[in-house]
Design a binder for these strands. Structure first.
Lengths: 246, 246
DNA sequence: AGACGTTTAATTGTCTGACAAATGAAAATT
DNA sequence: AATTTTCATTTGTCAGACAATTAAACGTCT
């Protein structure tokens, strides 16, 4: 683990990279304690604040955790799927909001990935996953539900579908695609009529999953994708009409 | 943007969260200059090193960039897909290596997602993407190629297939699944015979993409998935045999 | 001897003050 | 008017200090 001392700028970034590479290469195994900040400062020939900035960079990526006290220090953190979900969702939201990604593009990606999950989900779904899906469908039918709550329930429904595949790697990858779309979905106003249509499709999808019928599940996902695109187009059309009227 | 002053620990994490939330909510738009470190220190009633640690956390996530000089400072960064790729891949590699994810689970996820891309790729593939795929196939056939280089070319081939779908969101999500598997793939020793088989499947896949035949492309992906699983099982079987012999 | 409270050393978290380096704007000079 | 110089601002880094936390070492009492 060495840094380039000739470039006296970005020292903390260089140190963070050196430690990160050591973790990736396996030289620093999980739960291994790093040297203390004072020792690291001496090793890299920098001051303690600089070392601390480097450690905070790593902590932001959940690569290390720190503990105070006599036997404390910085430890290589076992990256949990749970922690990675959060980062993945944040990054997805940022990407979609900052890069003018169209609803159509994001929606296409989301449903393409979900359709990839569906055959596995229909095979492996447990009673638990199915119950979650049914519960969310029931929630979606309740009167007085705000659009945001309806969207959140929609996300939970689809998360259950994805998790039913029983593959944590798939769940992780899909978390970004499904949850990252929520801000875009929130632009849509769900009328009572459109909610009915979505709930009907969700029910049919849940039925297909219960019957372990992957063909029907796929058909329903295609219908959901098409209907989502249609709703978004209506929103855009209305907005354009309002703009033209001005 | 406020923090809880009653808890005098994790101040930098709290400040980072406050700023991150402001960025996500849109209160701080892209390219907006944050207050200077001295001003932030005053606003949050903390010292400058604490503010700096918070900013480094955000920089580690590519949420801000900093610039020295008179008109410098920290600016909200437009998160590029390119930047997000790198983080995605690093996180995926960590997740797979630290959580005892089996080759079978990772492989299943990867090919499920790739099959989701394939129909779009066959529809939209450009001559450019096809040329990249052909070039990587050619590289894979060269004698004297190390296993690592063969794997890297395999990844490049599949990246081209994914990018051919013309959906940056899909490419981003798939980057983790495809490139994150590389360390696992590197465990496999590719004999001349197994390379031949893989190259034949790649060629058939490229042919299907060229002919815009999504059914054939899907069949070849399924075959590739099965063959990858078979190779991995052989490696595991050999390893177990060696262990039993001891 | 064993259980329990106390001290102590190590470590992170934070603060203060300082200087160096970069950089654009303003001022001075040609 | 163009160029050079100066200057103010801001980040990057450093040194030293103290507070808070924590577990181990130590001492004391039963």
């Amino acid at each position: 683990m060495k840094i380039d001392p000739t470039n006296p700028a970005d020292l903390s970034a260089q140190i963070a990279k050196a430690i990160r590479d050591a973790i990736i290469s396996g030289a620093l195994p999980v739960d291994k304690r790093l040297p203390s900040e004072a020792e690291l400062a001496e090793q890299f020939a920098v001051s303690r604040p600089t070392v601390r900035e480097a450690l905070k960079r790593l902590a932001a990526q959940s690569l290390i955790r720190t503990q105070r006290g006599a036997t404390g220090g910085a430890f290589v953190n076992r990256l949990k799927f749970e922690d990675a979900y959060g980062q993945q969702i944040t990054t997805s939201i940022m990407l979609l909001s900052m890069n003018d990604v169209s609803f159509a593009t994001a929606c296409e990606a989301r449903y393409a990935l979900e359709r990839a999950c569906a055959p596995l989900s229909t095979q492996r779904r447990s009673a638990d996953h199915l119950a979650t899906m049914r519960a969310e469908i029931h929630r979606q039918g309740q009167p007085g539900l705000t659009d945001e709550a309806f969207c959140a329930s929609d996300v939970a429904f689809h998360r259950a579908l994805v998790d039913a595949a029983g593959n944590p790697v798939l769940s992780y990858q899909l978390a970004g695609a499904v949850e990252g779309m929520q801000p875009l979905m929130n632009m849509i106003t769900f009328t009572a009529r459109s909610r009915e249509t979505i709930i009907a499709l969700h029910t049919a999808l849940a039925d297909a999953v219960e019957a372990r019928d992957s063909t029907k599940a796929d058909e329903n996902l295609v219908s959901l994708a098409q209907y989502s695109q249609q709703l978004a187009q209506e929103v855009i059309a209305k907005r354009n009409a309002a703009r033209a009227a001005k």
